[in-house]
Amino acid sequence: MRSGFRWRQGAGDATRGGSPGARRIAWPRTLAAKRNARLLPEHLRFVHEEAHGGVLHCFVLDCSGSMMRGQRLALAKGILIALFDQARATRAQVALVCFSANRADVRFGPAVPRWWNERWIAPVGGGGGTPLTLGVETAAALLERASRRRPGQQRCLWILSDGRSSGSPIRPASADYVAFVDVEEGPLRIGRCAELAREWGGAYFPRDAFGNI
């Protein structure tokens, strides 16, 4: 990613909960400190290895019919792969939920992957309506199961969508951090992703936050 959102590894800081031995980044607190600015070293927050249960990044990909307009789905897939690679670099667990028409499927995880497999998204095609609520509910169930298995784990929910849905999903209670990646484009934008981010107290990233990927 050339500009905008960027993940970096850095040294610990006692004032931010880290130490020279705390090398893993606490992403929910780091992203909350960063908000919508470009990630800088001073935003980084760290956790002690022995004091946490790891990190789970659950990605929810909108594959509905509206995502076929203007290459929105292709852009979302590119951003997804970039985010996945960053999560993998920190040895975090990853899960992928895809939704379209009248269904939502868990395509991967939760697990710590050794590599990215193109087959996880290659069969994903756009089509049908936008069951955003169903996609979020599927992710919420996954996160809830994960919270029971590993109570100390940090759980991050990423929703990649154009927001073209009339549904009103509820913020998953087991998500410690929520981020909306908005791939909506064109002069007539409904701004649904930004609206939900505000309602949920989550982060919001427009499509240009990731530069050219």
Rank of each mutant, 00 (worst) to 15 (best):
residue 4 G to K: 14
residue 6 R to E: 14
residue 6 R to W: 03
residue 7 W to I: 11
residue 8 R to F: 15
residue 9 Q to C: 12
residue 9 Q to A: 14
residue 10 G to H: 13
residue 22 A to W: 09
residue 23 R to L: 15
residue 26 A to W: 13
residue 35 R to F: 12
residue 36 N to M: 12
residue 39 L to D: 04
residue 40 L to Y: 08
residue 40 L to I: 08
residue 41 P to C: 03
residue 57 H to Y: 13
residue 60 V to L: 10
residue 62 D to I: 12
residue 63 C to K: 05
residue 65 G to F: 06
residue 68 M to K: 14
residue 80 L to R: 03
residue 80 L to A: 07
residue 83 L to S: 07
residue 84 F to N: 00
residue 89 A to L: 09
residue 90 T to P: 00
residue 93 Q to I: 01
residue 93 Q to A: 15
residue 96 L to R: 03
residue 97 V to K: 03
residue 101 A to W: 09
residue 102 N to G: 08
residue 105 D to S: 09
residue 106 V to N: 03
residue 110 P to H: 06
residue 111 A to S: 15
residue 112 V to Q: 14
residue 115 W to N: 10
residue 116 W to Q: 01
residue 118 E to L: 08
residue 123 P to H: 11
residue 128 G to K: 05
residue 129 G to P: 03
residue 139 A to W: 08
residue 140 A to T: 04
residue 142 L to W: 08
residue 149 R to K: 14
residue 152 G to Y: 09
residue 156 C to F: 04
residue 162 D to F: 00
residue 165 S to W: 06
residue 167 G to N: 01
residue 169 P to M: 02
residue 169 P to H: 02
residue 171 R to W: 05
residue 172 P to W: 07
residue 174 S to Q: 14
residue 175 A to E: 13
residue 176 D to K: 04
residue 178 V to M: 13
residue 178 V to R: 07
residue 179 A to E: 15
residue 180 F to R: 03
residue 181 V to D: 01
residue 183 V to R: 10
residue 190 I to C: 09
residue 190 I to E: 13
residue 193 C to S: 11
residue 197 A to T: 00
residue 199 E to K: 09
residue 200 W to G: 05
residue 203 A to I: 03
residue 205 F to H: 09
residue 206 P to H: 01
residue 209 A to S: 12
residue 209 A to F: 05
